[in-house]
Structures are given as structure tokens and as C-alpha cells.
Design a binder for these strands. Structure first.
Lengths: 232, 232
DNA sequence: CTTGACGACCGACCGACGGTCTGTAATATG
DNA sequence: CATATTACAGACCGTCGGTCGGTCGTCAAG
């Protein structure tokens, strides 16, 4: 085969893109390094020149995805003049909107991520998202504490708790995703909405707010996310 | 090699025991099926006669461990005459005592379970413990709701949330474990205690209780658990 | 006691996969 | 133009989970 040389950054990106597509298409363990290099049009040696291991690719991928996600929400974090609760609700609202806009991709991602053989994928993504979100969340909580709106015993600890609390919704999401194509799709989506509402109340209480202060869902969010778009 | 025939149950148990020892000694992925059969004194064919796969062993192991754990706490769940909060605190207290009594084994387990290559081990154990604990927790919460002690929006959802909330402590536990043999062992243990106290407050609030109602830790618990026993 | 069937067990073998190694073409450096 | 370095190629390897054909113990039926 002819040797093709490109800028390292470009090659790296091509490999990452190929890996991303394959991971979310076939699953992480089901994707082999040979699959990745085949799609990226590269050799084994080239691959291991850019990455130390298959998991190294995943790590880089997760970090990049997490950073890109947060970047789309950064404006809300920096926006002056918002009190902490308004900021948090705006943050959550925008996050939901972005998800709905990317619904098909998000759906595919959820669909594959909770299947066997994808634990590492799930864990790495979760950890990467957590790592970039933690400081942002901690800042909001600290602001709320200063403003006297929130009432928490320890900002850092509560930030961590709230973050990992998000994982408690994942089981419910998995259930909804797996039921989405069945007849009970609507019911599953409604159940997820309700479950997310409960999650919101848990957040309220941990932050010392009245129930319902945080809008973690809006009606029909789960349905908009999970159900394939219907022709009008 | 001579052929040895035993009662299937006995063989199964021997394989499970060997697997348990090796998983918590070398780690899950680092343990090969050959390792397991070597320790159990059995052949490959015999192994796959009793278990469908390596992960099948783990599944059976996790379930057995989870069941045994809960069995030691069952008395408190069945004890009549306890209000929900007292029952919950008794449950937690007894769980702590059992952990401290088994401190070396628990320490070894935590030490290996958070290392790379043990995600599946961690996940299966967690899922198995969750599966057996969920109904128990839901019953306590339902009791508290009836008694008017707790105030939750939805018993089942809150039970799930509280369970997965436990996972939020695992990061902190992992940090403490990894620092236990260093000079900062004491400090790490104290940090873990504090972190667990925060967790308790989060539980209070989710259940609609005043801060401090649930005693999730007692002073020195983390130290008793993490620090190797000193000669007097 | 003989026989036959069945479940338990053996161990050589396999295919796939992540990763390595030697070598070479392209590019940067002097 | 010489030379060192980087980027890439692809054959190869070791390991590991899992398979498969066959064999041996056990026990019930005749």
C-alpha cells in the first residue's frame, strides 16, 4: 500500500472520528483496532504511533466530547447578572435544548452505551463529562451559597454528589431507550419524564430549595428526545 | 490427569471460591479462566460445563455475595416496633459494624475494585447489591411515608435515587483507599468521614428530614475501616 | 453382575484480538 | 546534499476466552 503522510493533528482527528463513529455504531468492545484503522485508511503501526492503546483513543475521545459539550453551555456560566438559581435553570434548559436538537445522535448514543460490552465507554464518557462539569457546578453552587439562595453544608461535596446523582437517571434512561421502539414507547417516555421530575426535586432539597425550584425537565422532553420524529 | 468427579454443587462452589479469591487478589480482567481452573483443580471443559462464560461466574458470585450481605441485615428489616427512621439508622449502623469487623477483606476488595480492568467487577457487584437492597429500602421509605416521618414525592423513585446516590461515595472511598498506605492516611480517612457525613445530610433532605437525622457515619468509622490495625 | 446411558470432566485446539517489531518512505534540520 | 527524525506500513506474536470430540464414573435397569 502507498504511504500517505499527513499532519499529525489531522491524522489524529481522522482516527478519533473513525473510532467515534464505530464505537457508537457497533459498540466499544465490538469495535476492533483493525476496524478503526480500516475506516481511517491507516495501518496498525500508524495507529500505535498516535495512540498508546485502544483505550487511549477512548480517553481522548471522551475528553474532546465533554469539552465540546460544555463549550456550548459556557456562555450561560459566564453571563453576568444571573442569580444562581436562574443560572442553573438556564444551564439545564439549554442542555435540554441541545439534546433535543441532536436527538437522533443522542438516541443512538444512549442506545449503544447501556449495552453489554460498553461499560468502559460509559464510564469514560461519564468521568470526562463529570471532570469538566464539576468546576462549573461548584461555581454555581458557591454563588448560590453567597447569595443566600442555596443552603448547602459543603460546596465541593455537594457538587460531587449532584454530579454522580445524575447517574441515578441513567438506569431510567436506559429503560426508556430500550422501550422506545416498542408499543410502550409513549408510556416509557412519560415514565422517564416523571422520573426526571423526581430527580429535580431531589436536587431542590439537596440545595435547600423549595420543591419545584429547579426545572430539570419540561413536559414532553423525554418524548421529544426518545421518539423518532413523526411525519406531520 | 486423573478424573475427579464430585457433586455438581460442590464443584460449582469450588469454582466460585477460587474465582472470588483471584478476582479480589489480582483483579477481574487480570484473572484468566486458566487461573481459576488451576486453583480449583479442574479442567477447561469442566469449567465450561458449569458456567457459560467467565462473566457468568462473576454474575453468580456477585449475586451470592449480595444475598449473603443482606441476609446479615435482614433481622433489622423484619424487627417489629421500629419506626422508619430508627430502622434505617439501625440498618446503617449494623452495616457499618459488619464492615469494620471484616475490615481487612473489605479493604482488599475496595483496593482492587477501583483499579483499571475491574469496571465489570465493580458494576456487577454494585448492580447485585442494588437489586437486593432496593426492595428493602423501598419498604423502609414506604413505612416512613405512612408514619408521616418521611416526606418524599415517590417512594420507588426515591429508593432508586438513594441507592445510586451511594455510588457518589465510591469516588471518595477510592481516594481514601489509595491514600491509606501513604503518610496522609489519617487525613484521607478524616476526609472520607466528612464526605460520608455530607452524604448523610443529602439523604436527610431527600427524605424530608432535618439535617443530621440519619447517622450515615460515626466519627472514626473511615479510620477503623481503612487503617490497618496497629499493635497496641 | 452386566450393560448402557447420561452427566461430569478432560485437554488439545481454535480464532480473534490487542499490541509489538522491524523496516522504510517522507519530511525536517544542518 | 547529508543526516536525523518523524510518520507510517504490515507481518508477526502471545494471550485469552471459548469450543469440541472424546472419555471416564456413576447409577439404574435388566
Amino acid at each position: 500500500m502507498p504511504r500517505i503522510v499527513k499532519h499529525p493533528q489531522e491524522r489524529r482527528k481522522e482516527l478519533l472520528d473513525a473510532a467515534r463513529d464505530l464505537f457508537f455504531e457497533r459498540g466499544y468492545e465490538a469495535t476492533t483496532v483493525n476496524d478503526i484503522i480500516a475506516r481511517a485508511g491507516m495501518s496498525k503501526g500508524g495507529f500505535y504511533h498516535h495512540f498508546a492503546s485502544k483505550e487511549d483513543v477512548l480517553e481522548a475521545l471522551a475528553e474532546a466530547m465533554a469539552r465540546e459539550s460544555l463549550a456550548q453551555l459556557q456562555a450561560i456560566l459566564d453571563e453576568p447578572g444571573l442569580d444562581a438559581l436562574t443560572r442553573l435553570n438556564a444551564f439545564l434548559s439549554r442542555a435540554r435544548r441541545l439534546k433535543v436538537e441532536q436527538a437522533p445522535a443522542i438516541r443512538a448514543m444512549f442506545y449503544v452505551i447501556f449495552r453489554p460490552g460498553n461499560l468502559v465507554l460509559y464510564h469514560r464518557l461519564n468521568a470526562a463529562v463529570g471532570a469538566v462539569t464539576l468546576p462549573a457546578l461548584a461555581r454555581i453552587i458557591a454563588q448560590g451559597q453567597e447569595e443566600g439562595i442555596f443552603d448547602v453544608p459543603d460546596v465541593q461535596a455537594v457538587a460531587e454528589i449532584i454530579l454522580t446523582l445524575g447517574a441515578s437517571t441513567h438506569d431510567a434512561v436506559a429503560r426508556a431507550v430500550n422501550a422506545a421502539d416498542t408499543l410502550e414507547g409513549e408510556a416509557a417516555a412519560a415514565a422517564l419524564d416523571e422520573r426526571l421530575r423526581m430527580h429535580g426535586i431531589a436536587l431542590d432539597r439537596i440545595l435547600g430549595l423549595p420543591d419545584g425550584s429547579i426545572r430539570f425537565v419540561e413536559n414532553g422532553f423525554a418524548k421529544a428526545l426518545m421518539m423518532p420524529a413523526q411525519a406531520p
